[in-house]
């Protein structure tokens, strides 16, 4: 019976072979389809996707462009022209003026004072808050103790409470310990209000590390700080970078705490910028204002463009779980 079938199929096979040969011949001639399926370079779908993204990108970039071109124009040119037009005559004078001469109320020594204040606020605040929060995260993830999760839950809910609710108690608290109005007081405020998000970041990271590593270190006789500094810290550089990015941009951009918890001589750059631009006295110098605005935005922008994917990872890690 097996043989019978073979015979029956013989003509079919012959047919198939002819087709194959034909196809081969065609290919050799170059008439038949060869290679990968052809793709239209500019399909309607692609035009729509890239077109939309292009238009949206232009919209998003426009304010940056306006800031840059305005800050490089002289006032006469601004009065005459179009705010989107590139400068006819490039001048850096607004930048110089914004940095060292612009006035806020009493003194006229420009934004430089605010810049250095912001540096003096941001560096210790970021370092201190990250240290505290990373230790918290490590204690929560590895040294689970009774009540730890409860405190952590309160902390996370606290992140959603509007700052306005806790503002005045915090003022009283700082006044009681004698830190109200001082740099140290503001550092403390940033540490306290930055704690939920950064602690969450570190707790999730340390939880994701294999627990056996922690156990092995305990068998090896390392204590709380020994494991933190010698085992955990060297493994956590990426997450420390992410925390740095979150905290430095967040603290640099802060306005509310800067106004509430410091005295005018310690005002951070954002507060000073607002005072310069929105001061009612004198003629408005839009070019100087834009130069000052751009100067204030430069630090977080530099961090953003330098850190790239880590910035995204930072906000996603904080936001999705938060």
């Amino acid at each position: 019976m097996g043989k019978c079938r073979d015979i029956e199929h013989a003509p079919l096979r012959a047919q198939a072979e002819t087709v194959l040969t034909d196809y081969a011949a065609q290919s050799r001639d170059g008439t038949g389809p060869r290679g990968r399926k052809p793709k239209k370079r500019l399909s309607g779908r692609n035009i729509m996707i890239y077109g939309t993204l292009f238009v949206v990108s232009v919209y998003y970039l426009l304010p940056l462009w306006v800031m840059v071109v305005t800050s490089l124009k002289g006032m006469p040119e601004i009065r005459l022209g179009n705010i989107f037009a590139p400068p006819v005559e490039i001048t850096f004078e607004p930048w110089v003026k914004a940095w060292s001469e612009a006035c806020t109320g009493l003194n006229c020594d420009g934004l430089s004072r605010g810049f250095w204040n912001s540096v003096r606020i941001t560096v210790p605040s970021a370092l201190f808050s990250i240290f505290i929060a990373s230790v918290n995260g490590y204690a929560l993830a590895n040294w689970r103790f009774k009540g730890g999760e409860a405190f952590f839950t309160i902390l996370i809910f606290g992140a959603f409470v509007p700052y306005q609710v806790m503002l005045y108690p915090m003022v009283i608290l700082l006044r009681e310990i004698g830190l109200y109005g001082s740099l140290a007081g503001l550092v403390l405020v940033h540490t306290v209000f930055g704690m939920p998000i950064v602690t969450l970041l570190f707790r999730n990271y340390f939880t994701s590390l294999p627990e056996e590593l922690f156990k092995a270190a305990r068998v090896d006789g390392a204590g709380f700080w020994g494991i933190y500094f010698r085992v955990m810290l060297p493994m956590s550089l990426p997450i420390f970078t992410v925390a740095m990015i979150i905290q430095i941009t967040g603290i640099w951009n802060d306005f509310l705490f800067g106004t509430v918890f410091t005295r005018p001589n310690l005002y951070p750059m954002t507060v000073q910028l607002n005072n310069i631009v929105n001061s009612v006295q004198g003629v408005k110098e839009y070019n100087v204002n834009m130069a000052a605005t751009l100067l204030t935005g430069l630090v977080p922008l530099a961090i953003y463009f330098a850190s790239g994917k880590l910035f995204v990872r930072g906000i996603a890690a904080g936001a999705v779980k938060g």
Binding site: P210, E212, L213, K215, A216, A217, R218, V219, D220, G221, A222, V231
Partner: peptide, 17 residues
């Protein structure tokens, strides 16, 4: 403490630093 018990331990995931 684990380190004071006179034991050595080997883990499934190796747990090497």
């Amino acid at each position: 403490e684990p380190s004071d018990r006179g034991i050595g331990m080997v883990f499934q995931s190796y747990a090497l630093y």
